[in-house]
Structure formats: structure tokens, C-alpha cells
Design a binder for these strands. Structure first.
Lengths: 133, 133, 133, 133
DNA sequence: GTGGTCTAGACCACT
DNA sequence: GTGGTCTAGACCACG
């Protein structure tokens, strides 16, 4: 498991996002056990507190559940899980639309650019990311 | 002139962005005089220091020029001005592509959503934004 | 025998409390044999260590006695047994009073609410809890 | 401002509770500015991080609002504020009822005890807490 | 081993 | 000065 961090967003939020992506792509499934705070901190090279912060955030969002001292698990609530993919997409689209709306780019021009770049990106992604941690 | 600020990005960067959008849409043209720092601070309800920071940033990017005591003006360099629109679009598309790439949303699905939301947004925008500053 | 655990208090303390409640309500009487650690752990779905810890706690409090290899029994000391009910009530009332004291809720309002909720709760309890372990 | 901490609950939650009580009793009103994290940490003798944690919790609960770098303020949403008192009382009553329900204490006996203890407590509280920080 | 909390001290950007 | 994040390291109870 690897995550490349940017310096704009808080690390713990990037961790949360990473897990959401893992769920959205099916790499993490219902009820699956996730690494302990300490383990995650180790593999991700972050401070255990930061990992803890990320996990707490995820728990508050209902993504994971943790009872007693057993390792935390992905929630079993399917509705929550299934909504994640949609949310990620919706958020991305919302942000994008908000960005371009003010410039009034013609729809056709915009879609053409997006299509081009997306396909380009997917091509790369396949080349790299074929194997999963 | 009104700008609604978010709490995520620095205010001064949002101001810079606002000017870029005004330029990209043709609401601010080559050589046009822009408000003084103090005036902008007043109309935008921001700290004069923030306005100053925004103008400094724009000057460094070559968007505006300030000579002596004369009011600042939009640059007369056409190449700079014409590149702005493209940059804004490119930035938006880059961010968008980066967001969705990890989720591997099928291109068709994605384009459909984007198209829908964009058209929706433009409709609203026309209804509201008929008058400009 | 079933106990529903919360995640706030230590499980072993919740087990102890459960036994106290059984004693206070007369479901466990003077000298009565109680399940072995292992048996309790099984029926309660808890770790044997936790059951052991609970029994140890109860022994220290004088609630149960264990001699040699014989199964543990409820103590025969009546004074201890009779004091339990009072303690449980006192603890509950203490915690409650401490909670509301700082908000200065008028006594009448408070008693009205409590009465309402208590009666409500008892009604439910009767409906469910007719049968005991 | 003083808060006496217990060792059972997390400090940051006790801080949150303290603020809720201040709101419920009217000592903190709509829109009022509250101390900075650092200041609170100083007066309460806690770590700034703990204060930060408490404030974040309160913000997530909608108790306080904080925009940009201005000092945080009590929310202006009256509905939220007015619900706090009720919540505090309801929580206390719920916990109390849950505690005594299992022991099946006769309602009359219980109410008598509560009334006695409450009045006692209020008498003390008046003697002490007449002055507000 | 697990999750959870706390302290201490630092850094950052923004106003 | 403000809010926010992060690291480092410690402690605790629980199982």
C-alpha cells in the first residue's frame, strides 16, 4: 500500500480519501479488516496520531467500525459503501463545474478536452497500476 | 463586484483567480484600469493587506502593471492575456482528471455526468449573472 | 443469560454490574452456585480472561466466594447482599444528580421528566423481561 | 473560568460538556466570542491540542463556528442552541433510567430519593456557584 | 497486540 | 495574534 501525498491537503484527509478510493474501486470490501493505526502509520510513513485522526474521521463518516479493541473493519452497511463511489464522483464533478462555470467555456469544447485528457490518463493508469498492493 | 470566498484557499489567491476569470471572460480588457487596493478591499470586504497581496501576486504573474502613482492597469501584453483562459481551463481539467483517475470511472459515464451538470450550471449562471459588476 | 455490552465501560465491570443487578433483584440468592469462568465466557461471548477478571473483582468485593476446586458461590453474608441494592441505586442517583446539577433544572420539571421516562421504561421492561436466564 | 476534570472521561469531552452547560445556563450566548485555543489551554491548564480537539468536536456538532482566522464564536443558529439544554437533560435522564430499570426500583421510592438528593444538591450549588467567572 | 487519549513542541498560512 | 496540522513519544485499559 502506497500513497503519494500532496502538500495542499491535510495528510489525514488524504488518507481518508485513499480509503474511499479503495472502497470505490472494490479493493476494500464490506467487513474487511483494515490495518491497525500503528501498522498503517508504519507503511505510510506517517505519525500514528495522524493515522488515528484519519481513522476517527472515517469512523465518524460511518466508513469503518471499531468495537472494543478489535481491529477496525470496513462497515457492513451496504448503503454507505455504495454511496461512496457516487460521492467521490459527484464531488469531483461539482468542483470541476464550479471552476469552469465562471469562464463560460462552451460545453462542446470542454467535453472534448476532458475526454482527451481522461483517456490519456486512463491509458497511463493501466500501464502503472495493474497490480494492487 | 462580488466574490464569494471559501475557507479552503487563501483569500488573496481567490481574488487573483477572480481577476483571471474576469479577464478570461472579457470583462476586463487590455490596459483597463482596475480599482485601487483600498477600493477593492472595501468592495470585497477584505483586509487591505490581503488586497495588496493579491495585487502583488498579479503583478508578479504579469497580469497587471503599476507605474508610479498611476492606478494599476491590466497588462497590454496580449500573449499573457490570451494564455489565461487556457490556463484556467487546463488547471480545472487537470484537477478533475486527477480526482477521477483513481476511481476508474468509465469515460462514457463520466462525460454524461459532466455534460449534464455543466449544462445545468450554465443555465443557472445565465439566469443570475446577466449583469456584471 | 444475556448481557448487552456498551463500548464505554470495561466489559468486566459490566459483568460485575450484571451480577449485582441479579442479586439486587433476587435472581441470585445467598449461597447459590454461579457458572464457572469458562462457562460464563462461553454464554456471554467474552474472553475467558475477562470473565476471570470479573470474578476476581467480585471476590475482592466480597460478592462471591471460591474455595478450592468447588464452584464459586454467592456469598452467604447477608449484610453484603442487602447493601448491594442500595449501592446500585445510590450510584445511579449520584451520577444523575451530578449531571443535572450544573444545568439547574427546576426540580419539578426534572421529576416530571424522570417519572414519565421511568414508567415508560418499566412498561417495556415488563413486556420483554418476563423470563429470566 | 474553571473546570474540574474527572479521570473517567476524556478531557476534551469534558471541555465540550462544560461549554454545553455554559450555553444551557445562558452564560454563553448566541454569537459570543469564545477564547482562542491557546487561551483556553492556558486557563484550563490543558494542552493546546486538547483544546483544539474540543473545539473541533464542538464545531462538528454545530455549537461553534469559526471562519478564517477570526476567533471562534458560539453559533447563531437558535435551534441548535435551544436544543442543547434539552439534550443534556435527556441524556442524563436516559442514563439514569437505564441504570435503575434493571433493578426495578418502585417509582415512588425512586422519585423520593431523587427529589431529596436534587434539592440537597441545589442548596449546595447556590451556596458555591453564585458568582460566574 | 488493539484502540484511545494526552502532553510537548513545532510549523504553516492568513490577517 | 488566529486556526490548523503534524511529529514524537508517552501512557492507559482492554483482551
Amino acid at each position: 500500500m502506497e500513497v503519494k501525498f500532496n502538500n495542499r491537503d491535510p495528510v489525514y484527509m488524504q488518507v481518508v480519501r485513499h480509503f474511499k478510493e479503495q472502497i470505490a474501486t472494490g479493493h476494500l470490501a464490506q467487513g474487511q479488516v483494515i490495518p491497525s493505526r500503528r501498522e498503517l502509520a508504519g507503511t505510510l510513513q506517517i505519525n500514528p496520531n495522524t493515522a488515528q485522526k484519519a481513522y476517527k474521521e472515517m469512523e465518524e463518516q460511518g466508513l469503518i467500525v471499531t468495537e472494543g479493541n478489535s481491529p477496525s473493519r470496513i462497515t457492513s452497511d451496504e448503503r454507505t459503501l455504495q454511496s461512496i463511489r457516487g460521492e467521490l464522483i459527484a464531488d469531483a464533478v461539482d468542483a470541476f463545474v464550479a471552476s469552469v462555470a465562471k469562464i463560460q467555456v462552451p460545453v462542446d469544447e470542454l467535453l472534448a478536452i476532458v475526454k482527451l485528457r481522461i483517456e490519456d490518463s486512463y491509458a497511463k493508469h493501466e500501464a502503472e497500476g495493474t497490480s494492487h498492493d
